[in-house]
């Protein structure tokens, strides 16, 4: 077991002093060479959960409970110096590359070099060779290392970001919406690349995405989040073939598939709850067509519904 996240709970403090629970009781485990997809609508706490386990939350956010065991050590209890040392070496993150994840005034090669030198005191030529190797690994010609992010296309920026994430041979890569804002062809290339790297380098990977197709293609496990909590979690084939939570069922129906061509796409009416105004009981009950009285008062805990498959719903 490479990563064991237990009961991760994160709160934000508003300027007025109110405490909002953005992530509550999230648990999962991940082995080497395995990919986990985290899905859910915007505002369901997917990114916050990832930033929590990497300890990259903004100042207003704080992990209030839980453990993040990485190769046996709790990342949440490391000192800042220990944490700095392990970042990028053990686990790295790929942000949405179309945004400003690369510094616009420094060359791409320079930024990869910086990541290497922060952790390994290598001589100049060795670092240079490594930068070229990394760029070529993701399909970027090595001479483009001297170029700046604005001279790259969106897809190339994303691949450069991936190359940078691999710089120090991490065991886990977290990709936060790696395909958002890219066109469909490029999305497919990025997903293929991530999948290939996972196999070749035996990487563990967490992919946060809105795109269920990405999960189907590149992940072994899927974790569905709603309102900051885990709605359903399990092996991709099982969850996609037999979703147990009403939210997962509706999410899958809202997504077009080639196999069910002609079947109507059904959206989920309403929107996810605001953190400042979470409903009592099951957080999904205001939008759930199957909701009964119990759902309005009692919060469902995740329970096993199959091998490695859990769902948090009173009706299962």
């Amino acid at each position: 077991m490479l990563l064991d996240v237990r009961n991760l709970t994160t709160e934000f403090t508003t300027p007025e002093g109110a405490r909002l629970r953005a992530v509550e009781g999230v648990s999962f485990t991940l082995g080497r060479g395995e990919a986990l997809g985290i899905v859910g609508e915007s505002g369901c706490g997917k990114t916050t959960a990832m930033l929590s386990l990497l300890r990259l939350l903004p100042a207003a956010g704080r992990v209030v409970a839980g453990e993040v065991l990485f190769a046996g050590d709790d990342l949440l209890r490391l000192t800042p110096a220990e944490l700095r040392e392990r970042r990028w070496r053990d686990l790295s993150i790929v942000f949405q590359g179309a945004m400003n994840a690369l510094n616009p005034v420094r060359s791409v090669g320079d930024q990869i070099r910086e990541a290497i030198l922060a952790h390994m005191p290598w001589p100049r030529d060795k670092v240079g060779a490594r930068v070229s190797e990394l760029l070529e690994l993701v399909g970027i010609p090595a001479w483009r290392a001297a170029q700046f992010p604005h001279q790259y296309s969106g897809g190339m920026r994303q691949r450069a970001m991936i190359a940078m994430a691999l710089a120090c041979n991490p065991q886990l890569v977290v990709a936060d919406e790696p395909t958002t804002a890219l066109d469909v062809m490029v999305q497919a290339q990025i997903i293929d690349l991530l999948d290939r790297l996972r196999r070749d380098l035996d990487l563990a990977m967490i992919i946060v995405t809105h795109d269920l197709g990405v999960v189907a293609e590149a992940c072994q496990q899927v974790l569905v989040m709603y309102g900051g909590r885990v709605a359903e979690h399990g092996p991709v084939e099982r969850v996609f073939a037999a979703p147990r939570h009403p939210y997962t069922q509706m999410l899958l129906k809202a997504f077009p598939t080639i196999e069910h061509r002609g079947a109507p796409m059904v959206g989920i009416p309403g929107s996810p709850p605001r953190l400042s105004d979470l409903p009592a009981g099951c957080r999904f009950h205001p939008r759930c067509p199957l909701a009964v009285e119990r759902c309005r008062v009692e919060t469902p805990e995740p329970r096993a519904v199959g091998e490695g498959h859990v769902a948090a719903c009173h009706l299962v």
Binding site: E85, R86, I93, L102
Partner: peptide
């Protein structure tokens, strides 16, 4: 945030 995640 990227720079922070890099362990700088």
């Amino acid at each position: 945030l990227t720079a922070k995640a890099k362990g700088l």
